[in-house]
């Protein structure tokens, strides 16, 4: 088995008396798509925030390809290949759709510190950005401010930003939440294509069990901040604790 590309060891964060993520140890490998499931408030998004650097853990450690990244700021983690899309749409609202993606491409290319040459002198960045927009079928909206997009299109742009970062670790946080039935396949196809490139590690927080079943190689279950199950989908889905957590919640979506 390949060496883990991402690993958390005893990762814990406390907010006052509340332990949001409690000693989660877990390793992920390239070519593997892991669904992270659990009820609302289980700590899925908080665990994501710890890995991508929006929050600093109370204790525990995070490793990317064996390197300890626990103390690195979020921007440096993006630089070492950890990419993150957000559950609540988190864009640059007054900038154009193209500019949103172009900024992510530009960050990846390391061109952010160029003060003298015009943006127009870097056509390859814009070309790449347009290609990422085409993947999520937003190329026609390229020059519209991000804030003017519909909810579904904003979700697509959110994912396009992540794709434009071209990370090793893709972290999707409910990428299809609130999307209509005909919009979701664009995102799911993209995630499928990333998975098909066996070099990438994909983490997916998802409530829709149909999506999990279709895409996941492995399921990690969080409950009350603790890792309660980890394994192949068919095994995990059969566990009593999972059935208990998802009783009444399970597979609400078609």
């Amino acid at each position: 088995m390949a060496a883990p590309s991402l690993e958390t060891k005893d990762l814990t964060i406390r907010f006052g008396g509340h332990v949001a993520v409690n000693s989660v140890s877990c390793a992920f490998r390239p070519g593997e798509l892991t669904a992270i499931v659990g009820p609302n408030g289980a700590g899925k998004t908080t665990w994501f925030n710890l890995v991508s650097g929006q929050l600093a853990p109370t204790s525990g450690a995070i490793f990317k390809d064996g390197r300890n990244i626990t103390r690195l700021p979020a921007s440096t983690r993006a630089g070492v290949g950890i990419g993150r899309a957000f559950q609540l749409t988190n864009l640059f609202p007054r900038l154009s759709v193209l500019e949103n993606v172009r900024l992510a491409v530009q960050a990846r290319a390391g061109d952010g510190w160029r003060p003298w040459r015009s943006v127009g002198a870097f056509p390859h960045l814009e070309k790449k950005a347009m290609a990422h927009l085409a993947t999520v079928r937003l190329e026609d909206a390229a020059h519209v401010p991000a804030a003017a997009l519909s909810h579904g299109d904003q979700r697509k742009l959110e994912v396009a930003l992540l794709a434009a970062m071209d990370p090793d670790i893709f972290m999707f946080d409910e990428p299809t939440a609130g999307m209509s039935v005909d919009e979701a396949p664009v995102i799911l196809d993209l995630i499928g294509a990333i998975k098909a490139d066996r070099s990438k590690t994909v983490l997916l927080v998802e409530h829709k069990m149909s999506v999990v079943r279709a895409l996941a190689d492995r399921i990690v279950v969080l409950n009350n901040g603790e890792l309660v199950a980890d394994g192949a989908p068919e095994n995990v889905m059969a566990l009593p604790i999972v059935r208990e957590i998802y009783l009444g919640v399970a597979d609400a979506a078609p």
């Binding site: 929006q54 979020a74 921007s75 440096t76 864009l91 960050a107 952010g112």
Partner: peptide, 9 residues
């Protein structure tokens, strides 16, 4: 936050 998340310090 997003600027930081896509890699800008």
């Amino acid at each position: 936050i997003r600027a930081e998340a896509i890699g800008y310090r």
